[in-house]
Design a protein around this nucleic acid. Structure first.
Length: 574
RNA sequence: CGGGGCGUAGCGCAGCCUGGUAGCGCACCUGCUUUGGGAGCAGGGGGUCCCCGGUUCAAAUCCGGGCGCCCCGACCA
């Protein structure tokens, strides 16, 4: 028998809400028996949940294979030495699970696999003839998240598809990147997700161009900026918006004023009677190239990600130690300013347009008023460094941007040569010249997709599986499994549906009808067939569609039911 | 790492303030009844009260320390 009997299956459902779960997907994954927690951010997938996970995996695999990517398997356990060579042993830092073997050798549980795959490429790729090459795997990743949360959404052990591409030219990388972009779009569409591809920061991965695929959901942890007019879409952290127009004010000579104990923008506003937009905030940063200062307007927030992206220095950090700040600028926090600083100064574009500004005097208890960029202080580089806000004008067309929340289900990167250079992955080009391999990498959070799908597809009563990743397509509820005729009919139908390629879960548990109906809603199988007394008396089975609750009746015969179910499911196909 | 909350049966919780027999609902087991939207009756099983230490004649309860879990923030492919 190929169909599954619930009475012989491990599918424990909960009537009550688990106290530990907050968002719908997490609650439902626990209640509907998909997962159980072992430790914070570590989960077991029970048979029902694993079926859904495998469905997602299958879609990913099919679409990867379709663009010629080659599936393989890389180790989870990776030597420390390899990670040191790219500098990421430090860059990833405490987020890596680290361990030591009995001989004292350091290892990490792989949070990602660029190092290991690049070393493989260094060994196995030697000629331009070997490329382009795209390799991928689906496997566990380990990250010691600061705060695991929301079940599988931010777990410490999670299933990820990661792919890596190797190229002779940038053009070739761009082609594969485009293929991946399209494949990703197909994958998320097949999973039933409403998503958006957005321009993304590259973080510790490095590289230049990157897109994230965001499943739209209010419970998402990421924010995306969308332009309804020109289609611009970006992670809020890097969303480019036009600098705001300058506040009113006339150019005038700079003047030192006493501002005892006036430190914050709000305090300056009330003390000096100025507009927050007329104030310039100064931040100090230290990186591997030394200290620098960063300026933004008082009514705006500094977007650190934009700074990191522009600077390309993962060691860059905000100076938050008062003594260090005083040593660099001569003044305590609250009185920092750009005037007289010897370190490089970067500023948000809006600072350039200020006719008159209030800045810290680098002297405790004093600010300058009437300061002007270029005249009174030097700015080495102007760029977009302010945080994008809902309603800010789009950096491309000026239309107000909308900020929405999303769940990052995938990200693709044009890495370039960061890893190949660090690990000596080179090849000989046609002209005999040795060059570093140009690389791309492409990740999908497979287990996270499951959470995102449920986040988008559920109602008050439970999960509503999209057809293609539903653990079963048909649930048959036998109201009286103790009555032989009902079970016989149910088994006959289950067998037939199975032979027709439909996956069937047969609820033959000794439970009350009410319980079976409620569990049916909870576990969210697309079609429910009900075998009860009506089936025997009137020769019909009732059918109910989970998505919209539509009900219908089929004649209680194999052919009629198969035909009916297929017809009933037709509207589910995307 | 900062702030908040929680840890008592599989799940949800009460008991703790004011120390003295460990409880409730659901779930589970047995029997009978019931059977189309989370049934009824009767009987029953299940606990290192997170851990360690202290106070006390006596600690789930008071005190100290630790651990775990959840939420908010900071952080993050």
């Amino acid at each position: 028998m190929a169909y599954v009997r619930w009475s012989r299956y491990l599918l424990p459902t909960w009537k009550e809400e688990p106290a530990e779960a907050e968002i719908p997907s997490h609650r439902l994954m626990l209640r509907a028996g998909l997962i159980r927690k072992v430790a914070s951010g570590v989960y077991e997938f029970l048979p029902f949940g694993y079926r859904a996970l495998k469905k997602v995996e299958r879609i990913v695999r099919e679409e990867m294979d379709a663009i010629g990517a080659l599936e393989m398997k890389l180790p989870v356990l990776q030597p420390e030495e390899l990670w040191r060579r790219t500098g990421r042993w430090e860059d990833f830092g405490p987020e890596m699970f680290k361990l030591t073997d009995r001989k004292g050798q350091g290892f990490a549980l792989g949070p990602t696999h660029e190092e290991i795959i690049t070393e493989l490429a260094a060994r196995e790729i030697s000629s331009w003839r070997d490329m382009p090459l795209v390799l991928y795997q689906i496997g566990e990743k380990y990250r010691d998240e600061i705060r695991p949360r929301f079940g599988v959404m931010r777990a410490r052990e999670f299933l990820m598809k990661d792919a890596y591409s190797f190229h002779v030219t940038w053009t070739s990388l761009e082609e594969t990147y485009r293929d991946m972009y399209i494949a990703y779009s197909r994958i998320f569409t097949r999973c039933g997700l409403v998503f958006k591809a957005v321009e993304a920061p590259t973080g510790v991965m490095g590289g230049n161009i990157s897109h994230e695929f965001m499943a739209i959901a209010d419970t998402g942890e990421d924010e995306i900026a969308l332009c309804a007019s020109c289609g611009y879409a970006a992670n809020r952290l890097v969303a480019h918006t036009e600098p705001p127009s300058p506040p009113p004010g006339e150019e005038r000579p700079m003047e030192l004023v006493a501002t005892p104990n006036v430190r914050t923008v709000e305090e300056l506003v009330s003390f000096l009677g100025v507009n927050p937009a007329q104030i310039v905030k100064t931040f100090l940063y230290v990186g591997r190239e030394g200290a620098m200062a960063v300026l933004v307007r008082g009514d705006q927030e500094l977007e650190e990600t934009k700074l990191f992206q522009a600077k390309g220095d993962p060691t860059l950090r905000r100076v938050d130690d008062p003594e260090e700040a005083e040593r660099l600028s001569g003044a305590p926090f609250g009185f920092l300013g750009p005037i007289g600083l010897s370190v490089p100064i970067w500023a948000d574009e809006a600072v350039r347009d200020l006719p008159t500004a209030v800045v810290g005097a680098n002297k405790s208890g004093y600010h300058y008023i009437g300061a002007k960029a270029g005249r009174d202080f030097r700015v080495d580089r102007y760029l977009d460094l302010h945080q994008a806000r809902d309603g800010d004008p789009c950096g491309h067309c000026g239309t107000p941007l909308r900020i929405r929340k999303g769940i990052e289900v995938g990200q693709i990167f044009q890495l370039g040569t960061k890893y190949s250079e660090a690990l000596g992955a080179t090849f000989l080009d046609r002209d005999g010249e040795e060059k570093p391999i140009i690389m791309g990498c492409y990740g999908i959070g497979v287990s996270r997709i499951l959470g995102a799908v449920i986040e988008q597809h559920h109602d008050e009563e439970g999960i509503i599986w999209p057809l293609e990743i539903a653990p079963f397509q048909v649930l048959i509820a036998v109201l009286r499994p103790d009555i032989g005729a009902q079970m016989e009919l149910a088994e006959r139908l289950a067998m037939t549906l199975d032979q027709q390629g439909l996956e069937v879960l047969l609820d033959d548990r000794d439970r009350s009808p009410g319980e079976k109906f409620h569990d049916a809603k909870l576990i969210g199988i697309p079609v429910l067939l009900v075998i009860g007394p009506k089936a025997l008396k009137r020769g019909v089975v009732d059918a109910e569609r989970r998505r919209d609750g539509a009900k219908t009746t089929f004649a209680a015969a194999e052919e009629a039911v198969v035909r009916g179910v297929r017809e009933f499911l037709r509207s589910e196909l995307i």
